[in-house]
Computed example of a mutant assay.
Amino acid sequence: MSARDRLLALIDCPPVDVAGPWLDLVAGSPGTRGRVQDVWESEGGAGTYDGILGVGDRLEGVVPDLVGGGNLRAFYRVDERLGLAGGETVLDLACGPGTLTRRLARAVGRDGLVIAADLSEPMLARAARSTPFACVDFARIDAMDLPLRTDSIDAVSCSLCLHLVPDLGTALEEMARVLRPGAPAALAVPAHAPGVLRPFTDVLARFGQARLFGAGDLSGEMRSRGWTGVREQSLGGIRIVDANAPG
């Protein structure tokens, strides 16, 4: 069974187009999600994001821990954080240009499935071109309304997405719904600067119409919603939270 056939069996809404490089599972346009998301919806923004992630992807294996190598590895090695052994069905939510998707594909192998999902069509176009794995398929998906069957996903990777959603609680509930009970999620969100620099990042967040996270913001929200094994670490400008779905 192809990756496309396996994905079609998991969705709970009719796709707009089943023949293209990705399934469009967003009914119409969800509207603007703020200035940052508008940038990622453009060809130039997607290209810039691709370049930035690509640099880190190439460096994470060679940069020493003393100068931030450990932080880079924690962000990029989502397959290790999820404990993937092969054969899993993984949702890469906000896959962007496919940088982490490729790592997930190698980890799940030919018997697994990686659903590379993003709201931005330019991001999906880049991901589809750069991710030649038979176990991967692509879908245009809104994190606020995941068009996937309940308890159908073995693991979720969601990096640099939750700062752009209109309602954090709804996005977390949707992830918990599609994950099998107790299944792992590996999340990463942009962080507020500490101490006296916090007002500066407050201004940046308001200008970009995005949310930045302080210590315990995301992990506390997840615990209050029944997620278990919640673990948070700071990577400077990024906060990483790993957890297991409720139930």
Rank of each mutant, 00 (worst) to 15 (best):
A155E: 01
R81M: 04
A94N: 08
S2D: 15
F133C: 05
D17V: 06
A3Y: 07
S152E: 06
T89N: 04
G229I: 04
R110L: 12
F200H: 09
S219M: 10
A191D: 07
G68F: 00
L218C: 13
A125T: 13
G70S: 12
G56N: 05
A155V: 04
D118W: 03
P21N: 09
G44E: 12
C158V: 07
P194S: 11
R129I: 09
V63A: 06
T32G: 13
D24P: 06
G31L: 09
G70I: 02
L104N: 05
G169Y: 01
L179V: 07
G182C: 04
A116P: 07
A210H: 00
L218F: 10
L59V: 02
R198K: 14
R231V: 15
R33L: 13
A105S: 12
E43G: 06
V36W: 09
D50W: 06
G83V: 09
V90K: 02
A155K: 06
G47N: 12
G208I: 00
L235C: 14
M123A: 14
D17S: 11
D111L: 11
G229V: 00
H192E: 14
R149G: 14
G216P: 11
V63N: 03
A94S: 10
E121F: 03
L148C: 05
R81K: 15
V36K: 08
G68C: 11
R140H: 08
L218R: 09
A143K: 03
P190K: 07
E88Q: 10
T150I: 05
D142S: 09
D38Q: 14
G54P: 03
S29N: 14
A107P: 02
A243H: 02
G83D: 03
V230T: 10
G51S: 08
R126C: 01
M123N: 12
L148K: 01
M175F: 05
L113M: 13
G83T: 07
A188K: 00
D145V: 00
L168T: 13
A19N: 15
E174T: 03
G86T: 01
W227S: 01
Q209G: 11
G61I: 05
D79N: 14
A139G: 10
D57Y: 11
R103Y: 07
R211D: 09
D217F: 05
A9C: 07
E60L: 12
A74C: 05
R180Q: 14
L148H: 04
G45K: 04
V136A: 03
D92K: 00
G87F: 02
R198S: 09
